[in-house]
Amino acid sequence: MAGTGPFEGWDTVRCPYKRFGGSVCLLTSHEMGDQISMYRIVERRDLTPVTKLFRVEAPLVARKAQAGQFVIVRVREQGERIPLTIAAFDREAGTITVVVQEVGLTSALVCRLQEGEGFFDFVGPLGRPAEPLLVGEGRVVTVGGGFGVAPVLPIAAILRERGVHVTSIIGARTQDLLILEEEMAAVSDELLVATDDGSRGTHGFVTDVLRRLIDEGSRIDQVIAIGPMAMMRAVAEVTRAPGIPTLVSVDPIMVDGTGMCGACRLTVAGKVKFACVDGPLFDAHQVDFDEQLRRGKMYADDEKRALHAWRCGGVT
């Protein structure tokens, strides 16, 4: 029975216990000097100087993954657990694609990983899938800012498949930071681009483009916005008055990702929710963004300290 079908991957689930003489699993990266490792990176693409795409072997996660869900990863034995949204999955190949933007120590460590190397831990899929929350017909506008374009991609694909008219707006500070433009074009009926400096597309924010669409008076049945918290808040403000149902994917600080710690709590419609199990997609008009922005800064000085220590120590 063992070793059939999708369970081929069974024996390769990483186990750090090799070092205690355990008989469990295959060799781990730190043992083999990074020669062999689980959750192997089969493809790496540099989307921008600070944004990388990784296609990772994780057959168990790939079997179950759905748009809107995320994984939690660690890059090294003393590493912290960080969440990353599933940008694509391939059930046959058993791979998961994530797009990572360098913002601090752990994301910087992720961005240094090369093809053939691997993640230390990779668990998922976590969170609720987007599918039941999406409208089935009419017109939807998706908004992706920064690395947020990546998680929007599979959601736009679902909508398109359902026959929904998809208008996508993607944005970044400048042209060089724009990601996945072609891929987004492929899953959208219409693709609009905005850059803060006007180097490409509309000169301005994604919200300026969204407002224009709304002002044009065309019917919009749903807006889905993923990106920096400030952008999602701005989108929520734009769609609030016209009353367009809007979903955002919040990204609070997380630890376990299974509902065990409560680090990810946020207030939605006056009620405390755990983003990792109740979300990460929520009704944008009910989310307390100010609280989220504040909670996101909880470890700001420690994070700087860790990054500094790493840069100065030159440790890998």
Binding site: C15, D121, V123, L126, T258
Partner: peptide
Amino acid sequence: KLCLNVVVGRTI
């Protein structure tokens, strides 16, 4: 045998 990083109910 020990399989870490498997959330039963989610991963399988």
